[in-house]
Design a protein around this nucleic acid. Structure first.
Lengths: 200, 200, 200, 200
DNA sequence: TATGAATGAGTTTTCATTCAT
DNA sequence: CATGAATGAAAACTCATTCAT
């Protein structure tokens, strides 16, 4: 009985998601007002609530969409591939995520900063399980001497930190390196860093 | 005629600062209410406003106190010291800041995520100037072949990212590595990373 | 040029009336929403307003339909009949109204509780006139010694109270006598009560 | 640690309770607005919410206070007393309640009409238990031939109906008997009715 | 007829701040 | 110093009604 969304529905839902992403990623859940989102989406507040039943619903939808792809770069780490190449490729996929979806990264950062009330259980289940699995792969590589004997958890943390920093702390990066696209330099630097870390 | 603060004044101001730090660092400026701070400080709301004229004032005081020491680790980078040792020592000072002052780190992260409305000019002046200066030092070391020829700006960013991550994304780190103190492992890993990055 | 209502029109108008009766009788005018009525009637809100121009219109239509028959039991009180039999028969007609049209009874009760804003004038005209007339009849019977010398107004009130109670306070009756049909016992009891009251 | 209420607190809480009783008893829960209550209490809306945390809380407080005394008249029915006198006295206590607390009676009526969502469980526990107990007493009297063999449950319902009617349907009573105090006549009539009903 | 889309006017509640004591 | 009392402005959400198709 659920009808397919019409064109207008699609357009407005997309506008709300984009506007919500803009505002939520900047001000966090409680710091965001429906007025801001409605303004940014070009809709009246009641009309906005015609498409999403509540502020919470918009935020939840955004977090869910975010989480659909958030772990993909790590999932794609292939235990059968060349260790160094695999990890470098992973770091680049993660950096691309920061470059192409910086608002999503900041939304995630906001959620974590606030204690992750809405995704706590995902962190403890899906995320932990995936990291454990991939950490085991990396540890296997290290045990075989294919990469340097680093702690695989901290290696993964470092890739998260190094790549997400460019999205989350964008304002600071821009202040220090005004007018430049930092992602080109970041990619080169990342290559250097990861390969050096891993060199057996 | 301004009288020196009494013991009670000092105690209450400190309580407010600590409570404000707790809440602001978690929920951001707009997501924080005076009620929360007053509760956490064990004061009534009007009494709280007796010590600070407004919500903004508490936040400002916290940011100012934060900025007093925030750049110290980088300032201490000594152009006359051993390049690798200096940079590693800097990274360790920064990591210690994350460990000892995680709330301050999150307050800073919140401010940056929100577009740094209150410290934008500091980023463009003090911070940029300091980074430019230290980047020049590092570049000098690289030009002389004392360290690997890395982009000094991205090197500094990476040290920020690697160290602040443990404070800012603490919830996520705890979810992935439950029950452990991640800072010990982080220090070891950091040694490895920085020394590898810099090896000429 | 006004066309006669089609089958669909009739069906939908009836559905709206029934749904409106359900909700209005439970929540009162202001406590009822068009959404509730539209849901219960299986129509969309705009379609509902195609049949009735406003919420008020539905409520008015219901009250009007209610009032068409509300006074019939009393009107049928025949001054030429046997006094006791006439009054007992009246009470039974009233009890049947409660049993067969409990929602209408509750709609009326709601209206009265709210100060009867919409039917105040009917109370003061039609109702008062009818009650005065029938009270005179009853008084005549009492004066002639055909029934006990009771105040005819309070007698009429008591018949209203005794019979409407089973519809209006249904929830309470069901709570006290769970699982039973109270109307059978009520009828027997009513016979006893009215005949005892009236015995000369 | 709970402090005793100050004079202002007492005054304002009482004003809110009285104003809430006025409005809730007339319009029901959903039909009542805080604006109405605040106006009637002579307070601003936020100040009203300073004393009661929500609209629901005011309503709950009123219902609770109501229920404190609502069952007292029936509780006082003494199995050791003279049957007819006891039941007549009970009816008079109940009528006095209607006379002295008509708004409370209408609040209760509203709650029942709406399906008793907030006191349903009290109806099924406290009320049912009390009625069962007193019905047993009355049945004992009937079995011994001290009163007529009436159904004790319907007897109790009839006393409720006969007495509450004057409070709940006050507008209608006033319309039919304008300018009079109906309670005097009601008391006389009630004497007549109950004694006749019970005559063995 | 029917419905998806839209909204102005409310309604409940929150919150930073002020006032009086 | 401290707090109970009070409030204007705003925020989240509701709802009867209108519009366009």
């Amino acid at each position: 009985m659920t009808k397919p969304p019409t064109r207008i529905q699609k357009r407005n839902q997309a506008a709300i998601m984009s506007a919500g992403l803009d505002i939520f990623s900047q001000f966090g859940f409680r710091g965001t007002t429906l007025d801001q989102i409605a303004d940014a989406a070009g809709l009246s507040k009641p009309n906005l609530l015609y498409y999403f039943p509540s502020k919470e619903a918009i935020h939840t939808a955004l977090l869910e969409r975010l989480l659909e792809n958030w772990l993909d770069p790590l999932k794609a780490l292939n235990s059968g591939g060349d260790p160094v190449q695999e990890i470098i490729a992973y770091a680049h996929r993660k950096l691309a995520l920061s470059k192409d979806y910086p608002r999503e990264s900041r939304l995630f950062a906001n959620e974590i900063l606030q204690g992750a009330p809405r995704i706590e259980n995902i962190l403890h289940t899906d995320l932990k399980q995936l990291v454990d699995e991939k950490a085991a792969v990396i540890k296997g590589w290290a045990d075989k001497g294919k990469i340097a004997p680093v702690d695989p958890y901290h290696l993964i943390f470092s890739i998260w930190a190094l790549t997400q920093h460019y999205a989350d702390f964008d304002v600071q990066v821009q202040a220090v390196m005004p007018g430049s696209d930092p992602y080109a330099g970041a990619a080169t630097y990342l290559d250097h860093v990861i390969s050096r870390i891993l060199q057996p």
